[in-house]
Simulated scan of single mutants.
Amino acid sequence: MMTKGAVFLLLLFSFDVLANNKFSNLLFLDHNQPSPTADLSVIQWLSGHWRGEAFGGLVEEVWSPALGGSMMGAFKLVVEDQVQFYEIETISEVNDSLIFRLKHFNKDLTGWEEKDATVDFKLVKVTDSKVYFNGLTIERISEKEINIYVAIEHEGKTTEEKFNYKKVE
């Protein structure tokens, strides 16, 4: 059974595009807008072990260096010393651009999405310090700190949430 927080986050990753971008750190593709050309060199700084606080608990992400045209990541949320859910994530080079894909899992590793389904975030834009995916932005503050911004939809209202991570040494 999914927790209330897990359902809340599932809503985040279930929507496609917002018609009106009212967020300061998020960008969204128009319906048929193509993604820009990019490769993994623009986000290689994401590699490593990151930890922060969000949703009343600890969040952790571990990203591998680029290999075979992709980076592999794992996420978990721990609240009151209990895992709430996991994500397996990839950022892959596809059609001369990047795509961020993920699948959610309950703490017992039962999946949220259908067997062959993934939640996909197409690349929108790259700057020196930010990589914008459709509704998800990864920002490099320094070599030891990153922010991840996500659009979260709950009960018809969409908000921009910030996850601040510090590198685990």
Rank of each mutant, 00 (worst) to 15 (best):
G69R: 05
G69I: 06
G69C: 10
M72V: 15
M72S: 14
G73E: 02
A74H: 06
K76T: 01
L77Y: 14
V78Y: 01
V78E: 14
V79K: 13
V79T: 09
E80A: 10
E80I: 03
E80P: 01
D81A: 12
D81T: 05
D81Y: 08
Q82A: 14
Q84R: 13
Y86Q: 05
Y86E: 06
Y86V: 06
E87C: 10
E87S: 06
I88A: 13
I91V: 12
E93R: 04
V94E: 12
N95Q: 14
N95S: 12
D96T: 07
D96P: 00
S97L: 03
F100E: 01
L102Y: 05
K103E: 02
H104E: 02
H104S: 08
H104P: 01
F105K: 05
F105S: 04
N106C: 02
D108A: 11
T110E: 13
T110F: 08
G111P: 02
G111N: 04
W112G: 13
W112P: 01
W112D: 12
E113F: 09
E113Y: 09
E114V: 01
E114Q: 12
K115P: 00
K115R: 12
D116T: 09
F121S: 11
K122I: 00
K122F: 06
V124K: 03
K125L: 09
V126E: 03
T127I: 06
D128H: 11
S129A: 09
K130Y: 01
V131P: 05
Y132H: 05
F133P: 01
F133V: 01
N134K: 07
L136R: 12
L136A: 09
L136K: 11
L136N: 07
T137W: 02
T137N: 07
R140E: 10
S142T: 07
I146E: 03
N147D: 07
I148D: 00
I148V: 13
E153C: 12
E153L: 15
E153Y: 08
G156R: 09
G156P: 03
T158E: 07
T159M: 14
T159Q: 15
E160H: 06
E161D: 10
E161M: 08
K162S: 04
N164K: 14
N164Y: 04
N164E: 13
